[in-house]
Amino acid sequence: MAVEMEVADGQCRLRPFSCELGLLSRPDGSAAFLQGDTSVLAGLYGPAEAKISKELPDRAALEVLLRPKVGLPGVLERSREQLLRQTCEAVLLGVLHPRTAISLVLQVLSDAGSLLSCCLNAACMALLDAGLPLAALFCGVTYALQPDGAILLDPTARQEQEARAVLTFAIASSDRKVLMATTKGSCSVEEMQQCLAAAQRAASTIFQFYRDSVRRRYSKN
């Protein structure tokens, strides 16, 4: 059920995307998301019974676990888990399932750049697959600022290393609002705004890709 896509966005191009929904049998929702050679597998469990210590009286408790390809999760994974959790919480209608736990496990299969945006996309597809109530969709877009000032959409690991700054945004489908922004390296305010505007344009392409992936899934019945 993989959907291939390659789109020209000015001189910036997204790498070929591919997504498969519901390929794991045990979790309630699962998605494998590929962005070029970067791939992330997401499994979602819930709304399930919550531990008393984690239970929230008014909404579902969301837990995000990011597993690196090798070794144990470290500080970097923890900080990304936090970003992912806050992004998911912004769109998830957790009030409809109070006193429950939702856990999202993201396993990195290969990291070839733009890993955080791939994680965001995989997380959104897993939420969709599990059928949890969402107020909107979100997608992740990564930009790299090259030393010469050019901006590069969806950079590879090598391009990220050479870049002056790497910016990742999470964009919501409702009015293309920004849910999360994180930067590494130095960039001016103008450059950041330029990247943000470009990210909002690229988001339309990704949302269209989401729609096509879901259509493929539902075309079978």
């Binding site: 107020a135 919501a172 489908s173 409702s174 729609r211 879901v214 259509r215």
Partner: peptide, 11 residues
Amino acid sequence: EALVGQVVLPG
């Protein structure tokens, strides 16, 4: 009415 029977997404 235009979307009945079609795939809809959150939002």
